[in-house]
Design a protein around this nucleic acid. Structure first.
Lengths: 222, 222
DNA sequence: TCATCCAGTTAACAACTGTTCTCTGGATTT
DNA sequence: AAATCCAGAGAACAGTTGTTAACTGGATGA
């Protein structure tokens, strides 16, 4: 039941996408808070005022970019996590998956890494919210795992955030290494996989501690 | 011994510091790549052209800020790491130490978190180099620990980077929580300390893995 | 077919940017 | 005491910025 969208709205969406693409390109060498409205329209080849037909302001365009970037990041995180249990080969495969994503969408990854702590509050908020949603999904995925037996909801979420942050750091390192030699990328991959493995080991022995469950305070002798 | 620096060079250093302070203040709500030269001089109350007496450009001022910010961050990381072995109370104390530093130098912390992946390459490079130096020091500190027996140099460095990144993430979260309720800050602290603990557990069991060899201090899971 | 809509255009605005060149007056050195 | 230095001031430069207003012309729907 596809309504063929009309040649007019189609053209509009096309220009809108062109604006997003141009902005993403320009953001390779600057941050969002210094990106000019005219700069973007100039890159697209339209009049500056046409910008307002699509976005209220640059921060507005920024939040749209967050949607796009993390939408494309979404499937990666799911696949990565579902295969991120103890097995060593699976960790290695997850790292390769991250590397592949950085290769496929370098500008998106750079944008998220840059604007996560960037100077534009609405964009920061949008990224934070999206990452929190990711962490929730990761938590749900982790909960299904047999190794999560006995884990509290809070602990699962804290592990999920640890994974998400680690993925972003790794992605950012891959991005830096992209302009380096093949050997640099391999070294990044090796360090990242060992860090991931250490976290997995910590996860595996999380419940080993004395006194069993619950809180850390009041550690009693066995 | 001390040559009292002359009233002229003293005044110059004073203005230079005023420029750095003003820039740091302005960077609370934007990123370095959008910071204007005139904006900074206006905030200090001097003529725009006087800027060139102290810095070649805004990126140049940025790298000076990196020096200042990570110089103040330096003692924190040392103390944090030297007390970051297995003990639970020590982890808690390390977290408090990070929180205290964020409280004392919020602008510095924000600057580093923001410009680490920011749009100004020389500044990014400066931060990367300084953090690498920190990781090296952390590695050396870790190497002194009895628990590091049997660890390769590479593995120690990978753990050190994990710690450094984790500290930055935690610091950034504290920064966000600073404008929230006291309860928010407490929740950040709890999550951070549990993440740190999980990493410490992973560290403790790092050498447990297969190979059939007896481990140095390893405790095997049931 | 004809009136309506609306993505994109053109023109103009005050305000701002980085950088150059020349100048000044108090500190420094001789 | 005189000569030098140099942090900062002042003016002017060509460009840039975001935003407003009134417009055009092809797609749309009656």
């Amino acid at each position: 039941m596809s309504h063929t969208l009309g040649i007019r709205q189609a053209q509009k969406q096309k220009t809108r996408q062109a604006l997003l693409d141009a902005a993403l390109g320009l953001l390779a060498e600057q941050s969002l808070s210094s990106l000019g409205l005219r700069e973007v329209t100039r890159a697209v080849g339209i009049a500056p005022t046409a910008f307002y037909r699509h976005f209220r302001s640059i921060p507005d365009l920024g939040t749209a970019l967050v949607e796009e970037a993390l939408g494309s990041l979404h499937p990666m995180i799911r696949t990565t996590v579902t295969s991120a249990d103890n097995s060593e080969e699976r960790i290695e495969r997850a790292i390769e998956l991250i590397a592949g994503h950085v290769d496929a969408y370098p500008a998106h990854v750079r944008f998220i890494a840059r604007e996560r702590h960037g100077g534009v509050q609405p964009v920061r908020d949008a990224i934070r919210d999206q990452l929190a949603r990711f962490a929730e999904e990761v938590k749900d995925e982790l909960a299904k795992d047999k190794e999560s037996a006995g884990w509290s909801e809070d602990d699962l979420l804290m592990l999920a955030h640890l994974y998400v942050d680690q993925m972003l750091i790794t992605a950012s390192l891959f991005l830096e290494a992209m302009e380096g030699t093949e050997e640099d990328q391999e070294r990044v991959a090796q360090v990242a996989s060992r860090q991931m493995r250490l976290i997995s080991i910590g996860r595996h022995h999380w419940l080993d501690r004395a006194g069993g469950r619950g809180h850390v305070r009041g550690r009693t002798a066995p």
